[in-house]
Each structure stands twice: as C-alpha cells, then as structure tokens.
C-alpha cells in the first residue's frame, strides 16, 4: 500500500506541479501572482471540450487550438486589464486577478453551469500494472509533460538570452526599457505563455478531475502550497513542492485520516510562511529603500 500511495502521490503531485509551474513562470517574469491561474486551467480544458464537441475536431487539433486560444487570451488580459494598472497598488492588481477568476467562472457557469462534463483522455489504454501497483497512462503523461516543461523553462530562464531578458525586465523594468527591451511586449508574451501552460495542464488533468466551472479553485490552493513549499519563483522548487504535497497528502490520507487531505495544503502554507517564507529553494526578499 505504501508504494501505491507514493505512486499516486507522485501522480497527484505532478498535477499540482504542472499548475504551479505556469504560475511560477508568470511570477518570475512579472512578479505578479495570478489568482486566476486556476481558471486558465479550467478554461483551457473547456475550450478544448468545445472544439471537440462543437466542431468535431480530432483530439490533438482541438488540444492545439485550445493552447493557442489561451495564449491569445493571456496576451489580451495583460493588454486590457493588467497594463493599465501597472503603476497602481499591488492590492488592486491582486484583486484584479481575483475578479478575473470569478468572471471566468461565471462565464463557464452560464454555458456549463448545471453539469459536470467528461473529457476524453489523451490516450485511453488500460492501466499499467506492475505487480501490485497500478498506474494509468494519463498519470504517466502528466508526469512526463511536467518534467519536460520544467527542463524547458529552467534552460530558457537560466541559460538563454530570453532568460537574461526576463531577469532584466523583472528586476528593473525601467532599466530594461532603457536598454531597449520592449518590456510591455515581454509581459504580454509571458502572460500568454503562462495561460498556455495552464491550458496544457487543464487538458491533461481534465480527464481525471472531470470538467466543471470550479475545478480551478480546488487546484489553485494546492498549487500555491507547492510554490510556497518550494520557494516562490523557483521552477525546480515548484515541482518538488508539488510532488511533496501530493505524496504527503496521500500518505497522511492513507495512514492517518482521510479528513486530513483537504487541510494539508493549508497547514503546509501557513507553517512554511511563518517559519521560512523563502521555502525550500527560494531566496529571501530584499527590501529596497
């Protein structure tokens, strides 16, 4: 049982990690925490569902269209809603993302409010059994995608020119602008990328969680826990944090009490933020005078 719990924990944790990654990308690039990221996740899945059922497109085409749509949505959001507020208080920015999350949920509820919809898995092969352990192909794909994405982004941000650009833009927007970096366009792109990542996560995870307007909210708290554990803004941290969360949830549910599973994320967040806000891998924040 222990091994199966850990395996399922890794599978669950990969979901959290995938979502946390999307949020981390945005945070690294713009220092904004997007409370609506769960809805990007949800919307991505819904858009794909629409393409699948309304248009009758094959799965991969629908998935691709979904990711592209969300990328565009991310750019639009940045341009229309975030950029005008750039100089304002952080409270307002944070609440803008919260309001957005409610808006998307409301829209989804109008179209699908009364139902929970099924979503076809990427591949439907029967579960793999290794001895006593069971693993579904969906789990493997999620874990695999997560690993792939984290490697991609770590390379991008740490090694490539884009990464240095990102570093410059987020450390000092004015300085970056002075040397000719188009900061607003960069922000727009990163919002698009983050939304697209949310969509990818949604498409992969929806077959497991099933589609419903509130599916994002549930995941969001877990993703926060993952980011907090691992250290805000750290890619590897988000992944490790997510996996840890998943495993610990499953273990405490399996051995201690199933009612602990829900609160685990909360306790983790509070404990980490009070004891070591930087998390496992993050750096402490420096206040500039």
């Amino acid at each position: 049982m222990l091994l199966q719990l850990i395996l399922s924990g890794i599978a669950q944790g990969s979901i959290y990690a995938l979502v946390a990654l999307g949020m981390t990308v945005l945070f690294r690039a713009t220092t904004i925490v997007n409370f609506a990221h769960g809805e990007m996740f949800m919307f991505g899945a819904f858009v794909v569902y629409l393409f699948l059922h309304l248009v009758g497109a094959p799965f991969f085409v629908a998935a691709l269209l979904g990711v592209v749509t969300l990328f565009g949505l991310g750019i639009c959001i940045e341009r229309v809603l975030i950029r005008p507020m750039a100089g304002g208080p952080h409270i307002a920015l944070a609440m803008m993302t919260v309001a957005l999350s409610y808006l998307f949920r409301g829209i989804a509820r109008i179209f699908w409010g009364r139902e929970v919809l099924p979503m076809p898995p990427v591949f439907s092969y029967p579960p793999i059994e290794i001895g006593n352990l069971v693993l579904t192909t969906q789990d493997l794909i999620i874990a695999g995608t997560m690993v792939l994405l984290v490697i991609v982004f770590m390379l991008l941000f740490h090694r490539s020119k884009l990464g240095r650009l990102a570093q410059a833009a987020s450390d000092s927007p004015r300085g970056a602008a002075l040397v000719g970096i188009n900061v607003p366009a960069f922000y727009g792109t990163m919002w698009g990328v983050s939304a697209a990542m949310g969509a990818i996560a949604g498409i992969l995870v929806a077959p497991i969680t099933l589609l419903y307007p509130d599916m994002g909210a549930q995941i969001l708290i877990r993703a926060f826990a993952a980011m907090t554990l691992g250290g805000f803004g750290h890619f590897g941290g988000a992944v490790i944090g997510g996996l840890l969360m998943g495993i610990l949830e499953e273990l405490s549910g399996g051995y201690l009490s199933t009612s602990l599973i829900d609160v685990f994320a909360f306790i983790a967040i509070i404990v980490v933020l009070l004891v070591r806000p930087a998390g496992l891998f993050g750096r402490g924040e420096v206040t500039r005078v």
Partner: peptide, 24 residues
Amino acid sequence: LPALRLKRYYLAIVTLVLGELLRW
C-alpha cells in the same frame, strides 16, 4: 503579527489560507 514580517502576496496567501483553515 505575521503581517509584520510577510510582504505583499505572502500575507495575502497566508490570510486567505487561514480563512479556509478556520472554515475547515
């Protein structure tokens, strides 16, 4: 008290989570 130490988003998240924990 923790608000003295935590900046911006960290405070938002902690207080949000505290609310949910209380609800639990």
